[in-house]
Design a protein around this nucleic acid. Structure first.
Lengths: 140, 140
DNA sequence: GATATTTATGAGAGCAATTATTATTCTTCT
DNA sequence: AGAAGAATAATAATTGCTCTCATAAATATC
């Protein structure tokens, strides 16, 4: 349980109970993409007395520190995922909400080429595809 | 000024002053991507007495009718653009907000290939790239 | 063209997600 | 251990958007 504190230190954040707890939640979750609410509910389940506002604040700090990545798959609320080792894109099932991750070097390369063409200096990019996952294609 | 009414009819919507005005705004705007607030402000500037709720309602109807496409480039609010003839993706300047549109058949093809691999039946996809446009790259 | 029927609108309350404020508590540095 | 500074909890405020419902307008019918 000492790894989280080290990660926080490396990220330049001070060690506080809420930050450690939230990082643990993110690392131990089976579901990679969690909303602030999700995190908050998990904290409540663990009987942690951490306010929702703190969850938002901490997640935003984690984002700034590069520990997590914020996505907005659907309108109105963000989901967060632990920053992995490499960039990837998402396939989101619009029925069950399942998210598949993938990474494609060819697409990445094409994206850079296009950004170059327009003279843009890229800081971020995301490709989200929406549709029905195999399980949710009810024979249509 | 008769074109808008025809477009509305074709979309199966009744002709009302708010709908015509909002469609005109969208068609005459130099900026292709407008938020509901933007549209509302433009209406106010033109001394139109149209409520914000109506703007939202009408834009949502336009979306349902396929007249406009809703994007959520950044969290928390949508922007709308007139539905063009073909799908395209976006390059968004995170400083000045300028949006460049592009379309790349190779990327589209790769996307389909990936969706196939995962067995997804795609309904929608979008690729947004964020960065600094040529004008906003002030040598750091 | 007038009237009936249906549908849309406007104003403001309401809502959900998120952020700001502020007094208090905790972490770190010495 | 104690001071200084930063982080937290609780609550209030804000934002983007939707709902309600009385009123008004648009199409259908005569």
């Amino acid at each position: 349980m000492e790894t989280e504190t080290q990660e926080l230190k490396d990220a330049g954040l001070k060690i506080t109970a809420p930050r450690v707890k939230i990082l643990q939640i993110l690392e131990s979750s089976a579901i990679r993409h969690l909303s602030a609410e999700d995190v908050y509910r998990k904290l409540l389940t663990n009987n942690e007395e951490i306010g929702l506002a703190t969850v938002y604040r901490v997640l935003t700090q984690f984002e700034a520190a590069g520990l997590v990545i914020r996505h907005h798959f659907e309108e109105g609320h963000s989901v967060f995922e632990l920053a992995g080792t490499f960039h990837h894109d998402h396939l989101v099932c619009i029925k069950c909400g399942r998210v598949e991750e993938f990474s494609d070097a060819d697409i990445e390369a094409l994206q850079c080429k296009i950004a170059d063409k327009f003279g843009f200096e890229l800081t971020e990019h995301n490709l989200n595809m929406y549709g029905y996952c195999p399980k949710c294609q009810t024979g249509d």
